[in-house]
């Protein structure tokens, strides 16, 4: 995660961070299309922006996505869940390019081979789930909404935008940004990737953490799994404490995995 710190030294990356954030917010605000759960979340074409920006601007997109989400909330009011919303969106903008790099190395993300498509889908899936895990876990931690509401809605919403819309945008924009030498690799040639084995180990931990958190969060918050190791008062509705205890280790593992990538 050194790149998340190093990028602040580069003025262009600071600007791209602001631009990623403003773009995300700019599409988020006027184009809230179809409410999926009214008052909870909508079908948001804006959710394609973090994925596209991630492939283009790397760490600047991660911070930009987090900032953009805050701006979006500024139009409709922030809440304590937004502390987790900030982290979740940071992950949503950060995971795609990290996963892509681990799986596909320096390959062009718009190549139309089955391998590329597979890598892209994996990157989007992990990013969407990581984002959903953090929001679901956070809101549960603050005793606001059940994990299984936000945890599933966000996965669906993010995946839809990142698979149905982002590829078209990426296909149109990536070659142009590449030609303008505005990719994060051009801006920060000093960035060095971790050894491949370490990246893959990190990816495995990320995937384990992300899936584990999602499955455990869903099972516990719906009452299907009442872990025997927890005190009885925790394994009854609303399961706030149980979700926190069971999901937290998975979240930590996924963060560790990201750190290794």
């Amino acid at each position: 995660m050194r790149d998340l710190v190093l990028m602040w030294r580069n003025t262009r990356m600071v600007v791209l961070c602001a631009i990623s954030g403003a773009l995300y917010a700019a599409v988020l605000v006027p184009f809230k299309v179809v409410p999926l759960i009214p008052g909870v979340t909508e079908l948001r074409p804006a959710n394609a922006i973090p994925v596209v920006c991630s492939f283009l601007f790397g760490p600047a997109a991660a911070w930009g996505t987090a900032i953009g989400n805050v701006i979006g909330d500024f139009f409709g009011g922030v809440g304590p869940g937004d502390i987790f919303g900030f982290l979740a969106n940071l992950a949503y903008g950060y995971v795609p390019y990290k996963v892509w790099n681990a799986l596909a190395g320096g390959r062009n993300p718009i190549a139309r081979s089955p391998l590329s498509i597979g890598c892209y889908v994996t990157a989007c899936l992990l990013a969407s789930m990581q984002c959903a895990d953090i929001v679901g876990w956070g809101e549960n931690l603050l005793a606001l909404r059940p994990f299984s509401v936000m945890g599933n809605v966000i996965v669906f919403n993010n995946l839809l935008a990142s698979l149905a819309l982002a590829p078209f945008l990426l296909y149109a924009i990536y070659p142009r940004v590449c030609r303008g030498r505005m990719l994060y690799q051009d801006m920060m040639p000093e960035l060095r990737a971790m050894p491949r084995a370490v990246q893959l180990a990190g990816l495995a931990l990320l995937a384990f953490g992300v899936f584990g958190a999602w499955v455990a969060g869903n099972l516990v918050s719906t009452g299907y799994w009442e872990p025997a190791f927890l005190p009885l008062r925790m394994v009854q509705a609303p399961y706030d404490g149980a979700v926190a205890v069971v999901v937290s280790p998975f979240i930590l593992v996924s963060a560790l995995g990201l750190g290794l990538m």
């Binding site: 600071v14 600007v15 961070c17 602001a18 631009i19 954030g21 403003a22 917010a25 700019a26 605000v29 911070w63 930009g64 900032i67 953009g68 805050v70 701006i71 500024f74």
Partner: peptide, 10 residues
Amino acid sequence: FAIMLAFRLA
């Protein structure tokens, strides 16, 4: 600064 700039650009 990036936050302020993003707010201005949005």
